[in-house]
Amino acid sequence: MKSFSKYKDLELHLHVNNCTLVQEKQCRIDLTKTLYVEKLKTSETRPVVKFSDTVQSSGETDLDQGWALRKQRKTSRFNDKQKKFLDEKFKQGTVTGNKADPTEVANEMRHKKLENGERMFEINEFLSSQQINSYFSRTFRNLKSSSDQDQLAAAQFEQNLTNLNTSVMSKLSATN
């Protein structure tokens, strides 16, 4: 490797000295790009498929009508056995302070067995973790709203009691 300060010196060196130029090594990315360009130049062109070619001549497709529409979601209510199981898990979480994980509850629901060895729940009674999470959220919301109503009723009762006390005291002081 030689370097020259002027282009003339390089030309003189190439003419006078018997040296050969070695092509610089290419990195893989450059090599890949050049090979890709060469392949594009030499490859045959494929015919372009038009949309009209994919549709049958009568204008109909093989797809059933409404294939892209959302399926109707089947709503079903939890049966008593499911509610009882979920309520027990919810109460256990409120007593211990450790919330039950809906995924673990769903897994336990699938494997829970009775004393005689039979499954507690049938396959069609299994619930997803999302359903269990929603049930726990609704239960908590209902519990919170009922406790808020109880607190409101207790506050109103105390207010009524203090109003009664003040009115009785004012009547007693007026008679004395």
Rank of each mutant, 00 (worst) to 15 (best):
C19A: 04
N17H: 11
Q149P: 00
N116E: 02
S57G: 07
E88D: 15
M1A: 12
E44V: 11
H15E: 12
Q151M: 09
D80G: 07
F78G: 01
V95P: 00
F140H: 08
Q131S: 12
R141V: 08
L164M: 12
Y7N: 06
F85M: 02
G97Q: 01
T103I: 06
T54Y: 04
S43T: 11
P47T: 09
I29R: 03
E104W: 15
W67M: 02
N142S: 11
S3E: 14
T166M: 05
A155L: 10
G117P: 01
R70N: 13
V105N: 01
L35H: 01
N163S: 04
E24I: 13
Q56C: 10
N98C: 12
P47D: 03
S134D: 14
L172S: 05
F90V: 06
S3G: 08
Q156G: 09
D148C: 04
G97Y: 13
T20I: 13
S128L: 10
Q130G: 04
E104N: 15
K91N: 08
E11I: 14
T162F: 14
Y36H: 07
K39D: 12
A154F: 01
E44G: 04
L63D: 11
H111L: 13
S147Q: 10
S57M: 06
K81M: 10
L10F: 03
A106S: 08
K71H: 11
K50Q: 08
Q82L: 05
D148G: 00
Y7M: 07
T166I: 14
Q82T: 04
D101R: 07
E125T: 06
L152T: 02
L14H: 05
A106R: 05
K81Y: 06
F136W: 04
S173L: 12
A106K: 02
T42M: 09
N124G: 09
Q82D: 01
A155C: 01
K112I: 07
R77Q: 14
Q130H: 05
A154Y: 08
R28N: 13
D80F: 14
V95E: 15
K83R: 13
N17I: 07
E118S: 10
A154K: 01
N142A: 11
L21H: 12
V105Q: 03
E24N: 00
K144C: 04
K144M: 12
S76H: 07
T54A: 07
D80E: 13
L69K: 06
D30Q: 06
T20Y: 15
T94D: 09
V37Q: 00
D148W: 01
E115V: 02
R28E: 12
K74G: 03
T20Q: 08
K6S: 02
D53P: 05
S146N: 03
W67C: 06
L12N: 02
D87V: 07
S76T: 11
T42C: 09
F90D: 10
C19N: 08
E60C: 05
R70S: 05
G66P: 04
S167M: 06
T175Y: 15
L161F: 11
K144H: 12
K2V: 14
E115K: 09
A153C: 01
T32P: 00
K33W: 13
L164R: 03
V55P: 00
Q56V: 04
N98S: 11
Q149E: 15
R138Q: 13
E158H: 01
L35N: 11
E88Q: 13
